[in-house]
Design a protein around this nucleic acid. Structure first.
Length: 327
RNA sequence: GGAGGGAUGGGAGAGUGGCUAAAUCCACCAGACUGUAAAUCUGGCGCCCGACGGGCUACGCAGGUUCGAAUCCUGCUCCCUCCA
């Protein structure tokens, strides 16, 4: 057991709902322990979308190396599999040359646990054309029709897929079709791979939390501040560059994030700004709630800290981390 | 002063004699989640009970009609629009 500890890659992980102050804590710890920050955030990856995604500031990024932020354009696609690859690379690189402590920080639960638990993801890549076709069919005939297909083609997979969730059913069909009709030989089939292979990480997972009401207030204040900081102009700029809502009803993945869609609809004259902002606040509340489903207060792996971190607590944390690094 | 319209659950808003504790949306609470994840999907959401069943209280207020009313009638209160 001692040997494993020596070999394992030590890293810090900071999780918690949106707006609790994960980034700020990450910066303090990075400074303290000569760390590199690795974003586990599915929205900060997009260039040109900074205010709305509450990206780390330029100053912070100069002071501490950040990874997985600003890596693709808004019209490009990203996914769990890509994140896993990129994050693993970033962690690996932090451990060579000037050795630094990787600090994974982000609110995207799927990314965080996928990385820490070593999820084995199907290698079947997204097939945009197929998805579009199936989505259209789901809309006209209902998800039920697609699910029927799946049941007919691959009952085993169908049994473990949520037949009411179009995204899931479509992905399952996508995997099925990518390998031809002989699904039996498909090494990509979900149940024929190990679900997860625990990576050799020794992660100290820190969770930041806050009483619900206070969190909502803080979120609302932050959104007002983002608007004041020019979020609307950023949305307009995005649209002018061609990354707008136009075309497909839902637009590109980047715009499915909180706020940008609402702001663009306001720019299109569909609703007053105050309504758009209120909608953003509510959606963000809901998002924060969802995050608690990934990061449970009862999860023993997470060391939870009460959000406005008191100095004494921070000092204590520094000591504990230092000791943990030595162990 | 006159003529109309309206008051429904935290909010918006259906319902116009029984199928209604009351559609739907939002808020809120909970859950799922393995290449779209800030996405997508699911459940709950008056109160109480040993709760796949039952009880109580509910649609501005008070009374009435009816076997039965959020729904019909009367009065009252408040709100809105138009005329003066």
């Amino acid at each position: 057991m001692e040997g494993v500890g020596e070999l394992a890659t030590k890293m810090l992980v900071i999780v918690g709902p949106t707006g609790v102050g994960k980034s700020a804590l990450a910066m303090r710890l990075a400074r303290e322990f000569d760390g590199e920050i690795i974003g586990a955030d599915s929205r900060q990856i997009y260039r040109l979308m900074s205010i709305g995604t509450a990206k780390p500031t330029e100053a912070d990024r100069v002071a501490v190396p950040h990874h997985l932020v600003d890596i693709i354009d808004p019209n490009e696609r990203y996914s769990l599999a890509l994140f896993l690859r990129d994050a693993q690379d970033a962690i690996h690189n932090a451990k060579i040359t000037p050795i630094r402590l990787p600090i994974v920080v982000g609110g995207t639960g799927q990314y965080v646990w996928g990385l820490l638990e070593g999820w084995q993801v199907s290698s079947t890549k997204p097939n945009a054309k197929l998805r579009e076709r199936l989505e259209l069919r789901a809309e006209y005939e209902g998800v039920g029709a697609l699910y029927e297909d799946l049941r007919r083609l691959d009952p085993e997979v169908a049994a473990r897929v949520d037949g009411r969730n179009p995204r899931r059913v479509i992905r399952a069909l996508e995997i099925f079709h990518s390998t031809g009709d002989d699904a039996r030989a498909d090494v990509n089939r979900v149940e024929e791979r190990p679900r997860k292979i625990p990576p050799d990480y020794d992660a100290l997972i820190l969770g930041l939390t806050m009483e619900r009401r206070a969190l909502y207030e803080r979120i609302d204040e932050r959104i007002d501040a983002q608007i004041a900081a020019g979020w609307l102009a950023e949305a307009r700029e995005l649209r002018e560059r061609g990354y707008g809502l136009a075309g497909s009803k839902r637009g590109m993945a980047a715009l499915s994030g909180l706020g940008y869609g609402e702001l663009m609809r306001h720019l299109d004259g569909e609703m007053p700004l105050t309504d758009a902002v209120q909608r953003i606040k509510y959606r963000t509340h809901r998002y924060a709630r969802q995050q608690y489903a990934w990061f449970r207060l009862s999860d023993e792996r997470i060391r939870w800290l009460e959000a406005p971190l008191r100095d004494a607590v921070f000092t204590r944390l520094i000591e504990d981390v230092r000791e943990w690094l030595r162990s």
